[in-house]
Design a protein around this nucleic acid. Structure first.
Length: 194
DNA sequence: GCCAACGTTGGC
DNA sequence: GCCAACGTTGGC
């Protein structure tokens, strides 16, 4: 279950058991708000610019279709995010330590793609800012298959998606993107679906 | 629903 | 600290 899943509103800690019921409202933005706790984060194409580029970009996966995990529905789509108070949610349910380290490394206001996983049409659906708050839908859905096509081409040509974590670190539910990766993906919005 | 890929656990 | 067994992720 390292996949991200959120709970309604101010959701609190991951392992709360129990009837999902109402959660007490927390002002705490949750793990995703991240203070940099830092550390030895893994080097990826996105994390190696040694300080000159202070911003980071992220991709966060969540499942938009219902699926029970230990009796709890892990579904959390971008529509669900929009429906939260302030369109903001707590990104809990991440257990993988590497993904958790990335959550801790996030800084407020950094931009993140919302990715729908384990569903009929996997792909990037929208943009969020770390808090985690809805920003906007993508101008068009960017399917996994299209990203993969570019990734494969870029491996040959040295293009921006050549090392994209979505393909090189599969199963990582929270992952960093370099600015080049982020900008390239944004540029796809303006193009015809391939 | 299948199952490959990969992470985690735990005995030794 | 190795590594086999087991569990999870997530595309298909």
């Amino acid at each position: 279950m390292p996949r991200a899943r959120k709970r309604p509103a101010g959701a609190a800690r991951p392992d709360k058991k129990g009837p999902e019921g109402k959660r007490t409202k927390t002002e705490n933005p949750g793990e995703a708000s991240a203070k940099v706790e830092n550390s030895s984060l893994q080097e990826t194409s996105a994390s190696k610019d040694c300080g000159k580029n202070l911003s980071s970009y992220w991709l966060m996966k969540s499942e938009p279709e219902s699926r029970l995990e230990k009796g709890v529905d892990v579904k959390f789509s971008i529509e669900d995010l929009k429906a939260q108070p302030k369109q903001t949610a707590c990104w809990d349910g991440v257990r993988n330590y590497q993904a958790r380290n990335f959550l801790r490394a996030m800084k407020l206001e950094e931009e993140a793609f919302f990715y729908h996983s384990n569903c009929r049409e996997p792909g990037i659906v929208g943009l969020m800012k770390v808090d985690v708050q809805f920003v906007r839908m993508m101008k068009r859905f960017i399917p996994l298959a299209e990203l993969k096509t570019h990734h494969q081409a870029h491996r040959a040509t040295g293009g921006p998606l050549q090392n994209m974590a979505l393909f090189t670190r599969q199963r990582l539910s929270v992952q960093p993107l370099s600015r080049e990766e982020f900008d390239f993906i944004l540029s796809l919005e303006e193009k015809e679906p391939s």
